[in-house]
Design a binder for these strands. Structure first.
Lengths: 155, 155
DNA sequence: TATTGTTATACTCTATAACTATA
DNA sequence: TATAGTTATAGAGTATAACAATA
């Protein structure tokens, strides 16, 4: 019995395994790891991917609004936008009515990169979760959205 | 309409919302945030909590085996063990058969702290997820474990 | 006064590489 | 040669606090 098998043979017991939070974290790390690997082909990190995807989806969104959508501070968004602009995936354009704000406008290259990345993630996620039936996957999504509803309203 | 309502009124669309990974991340962040807040009363971080819990549950485990259980590098475990030992929650004890290894032995204070933290997390998690029926929660755990089974075998 | 974008800074978590003492 | 614990170091990712420009 090698070390890996030895670890798995030991029962981690109910203490951690009983928690939704613990299982959520472990499952998330599996999916996140596959996700990161999938994206690395496009040279996109998780942050760049979700930011780019949202900008493509909501062209003209301001940085502050985008930071709220992403659930991060607007100060943290600056470096992400810098990088996406450096890759020519989006541009900061001034907003006519408000000279403080920067609207984010995806370029053609950005839209193409987002579409390709989304397609790749769809393929890889479907393969990774192929052990789940369509019903199971739907039930999982419904439950996860319920949990999100509990916490994201009063955030 | 304030800014928060405005953000929510915009549809984030199918692009990100369709992904299990994205919903897993958002749900995980909700639960993790509640978890961290709950633990802060005991002065425990997530890392300290799960490490201490595992040591209490598997007394005598070595650092290398523990690192594998936690899914982190053994170099990263050193500071965690240092901190738990500093708080007198566990001790490094030499292993008779192998002078390289350090077995981790929980103290009485460590066992008590772990038990209290687990009880607190149980209470808070039950309250946070009170919108889920017992069946829903069981189905969620079963599905999450299936996902874990897919990824943690070949890790 | 409040908000937008920005910078500077620090903190947490984690990984990699190299070292030592053992095996 | 390989493994256990350790150290040093670096890299993400994020948060906080402050600032100038603008509302």
């Amino acid at each position: 019995m090698d070390k890996r098998a030895e670890d798995q043979a030991e029962d981690d017991g109910p203490a951690l395994e009983q928690f939704v939070g613990y299982n959520l974290k472990r499952a998330y790390m599996i999916v996140q790891s596959d996700f990161t690997e999938t994206l690395s082909a496009s040279g996109l990190s998780t942050r760049l991917f979700s930011t780019l995807t949202l900008v493509v989806q909501c062209p003209g969104v301001t940085q502050s609004a985008l930071a709220r959508k992403l659930g991060i501070e607007r100060s943290g968004l600056v470096a992400i936008i810098d990088e996406l602009e450096r890759r020519d995936y989006l541009r900061r354009v001034s907003v006519p009515g408000d000279r403080r704000a920067q609207a984010l406008s995806p370029t053609g290259a950005g839209a193409r990169a987002a579409a390709e990345a989304i397609a790749a993630v769809q393929r890889h996620e479907a393969a990774l979760l192929s052990m789940l039936s369509a019903e199971e996957k739907a039930a999982l999504l419904a439950t996860l959205r319920k949990i999100r509803g509990a916490g994201e309203g009063d955030a």
